[in-house]
């Protein structure tokens, strides 16, 4: 198949597709993992059932974005895939352990007949979510500093691990505000309020650390005129955090007004942070080592994937919307009949 885009453009298109998949994963499985992280805070077993039910129909498709993101990295940037996964071998293995425990816990807890058995899978659900969130944060921190293994860089990765876990619990709480009602919803508002501070701190931390660690990133952000053009990004982030703080102080409102807003605010924060990171690293795919073009696969192969993706992705979007409509509104107990 002949490439239908100039070979120089293909890697950018694929980097954009991959970034979109990773962002979709972080947002979508972010709230799943967040709900898992909040599970021990629930008052009782029915409340835990309701929390799990709110993500039950979605988690599987949400997790598929991770496969697509890694798959695109694998197929479009094979050299980078090798370099990144080799550097992150152990955290990847631990993340997979976490995702496995979390994924099977959905099914096993639903089929448990004894309460103590079910509680065991609740613990697996929480433990798996925690392990996945922490390792993803750790990998982000390692990646941001170009896999530097000085003690300070590892400390940064540890902070990043905690930051991502807090960010996931924030978006998970925001999801529960949307999808739950009554006491659980009120509790979710409190959880969201608490974790928002952690999220804000994390964003500030990464924003300060990356320009300090890399001169190149410093110049990308602070040289004139970039500093003026980019100023709206941190300002919007700041406004969003302030707006969320104010909103969460008043929720839930009569008639459940604005119940969706915290979630979409959280999505906005995730997108802004992601865009900031993307701007810092472009055009590198392995920070300071490999650019998109150096790591890209052969144009013929990229073309045939792109052709398929352009046909199939809109279809995926359409049926994802359908599923979200079918399972819209407040979470109900999951029934197989």
């Amino acid at each position: 198949m002949t490439p239908f885009l100039p070979p120089d453009v293909l890697p950018i298109v694929f980097a954009a597709l991959m970034a979109a998949s990773v962002l979709a994963y972080v947002v979508l499985d972010g709230f799943d993992l967040g709900v898992g992280l909040l599970l021990p805070q629930a008052a009782d077993e029915p409340e835990r059932d309701r929390m799990v039910a709110s993500i039950g129909p979605f988690w599987d498709a949400n997790e598929t974005w991770l496969v697509l993101g890694v798959g695109l990295l694998l197929v479009a940037f094979p050299t980078a895939h090798g370099a990144i996964l080799t550097a992150l071998y152990l955290p990847v293995a631990l993340m997979l352990l976490g995702l496995t425990l979390r994924g099977v816990a959905f099914e096993f807890r639903a089929k448990a007949t004894e309460l103590h058995d079910k509680r065991r899978w609740d613990h697996a659900f929480f433990g798996g979510s925690l392990l996945a969130a922490l390792t993803q944060g750790w990998m982000l921190g390692r990646y941001v500093l170009g896999f530097d293994d000085a003690p300070a860089a590892l400390a940064f990765a540890a902070l990043s691990a905690i930051g991502v876990a807090i960010a996931y619990s924030f978006i998970g709480a925001a999801w529960l505000i949307w999808r739950c009602e009554g006491a659980l919803q009120r509790r979710a508002v409190a959880w969201a309020r608490r974790s928002l501070w952690g999220v804000a701190l994390g964003i500030v931390g990464v924003s300060v650390a990356t320009p300090l660690a890399s001169e190149r990133i410093f110049h990308r952000w602070f040289d004139f005129p970039n500093v003026m053009l980019l100023a709206p990004m941190p300002l919007m982030t700041l406004a969003l955090v302030a707006g969320l703080v104010a909103l969460l102080r008043h929720l839930p409102l009569p008639g459940d007004a604005l119940r969706r807003l915290p979630f979409w605010g959280a999505v906005g924060l995730f997108c802004l942070s992601f865009a900031g990171l993307a701007w810092s690293f472009f055009p590198y795919i392995v920070p300071e080592q490999l650019t998109l073009w150096q790591a890209a696969a052969a144009p013929e192969s990229l073309s045939i994937i792109l052709a398929g993706a352009l046909v199939v992705l809109p279809v995926i979007a359409a049926y994802t919307v359908l599923a979200w409509r079918v399972f819209g509104g407040k979470a109900m107990d999951l029934r197989y009949d």
Binding site: P57, V312, Y319, F327, Y336
Partner: peptide, 19 residues
């Protein structure tokens, strides 16, 4: 991934819980 994984994962939700 594109033609199978998303399809089965998304409609599984409807198949299991959508009756």
């Amino acid at each position: 991934v594109l033609t199978a994984f998303f399809l089965e994962a998304t409609f599984l939700g409807i198949m299991l819980f959508g009756y």
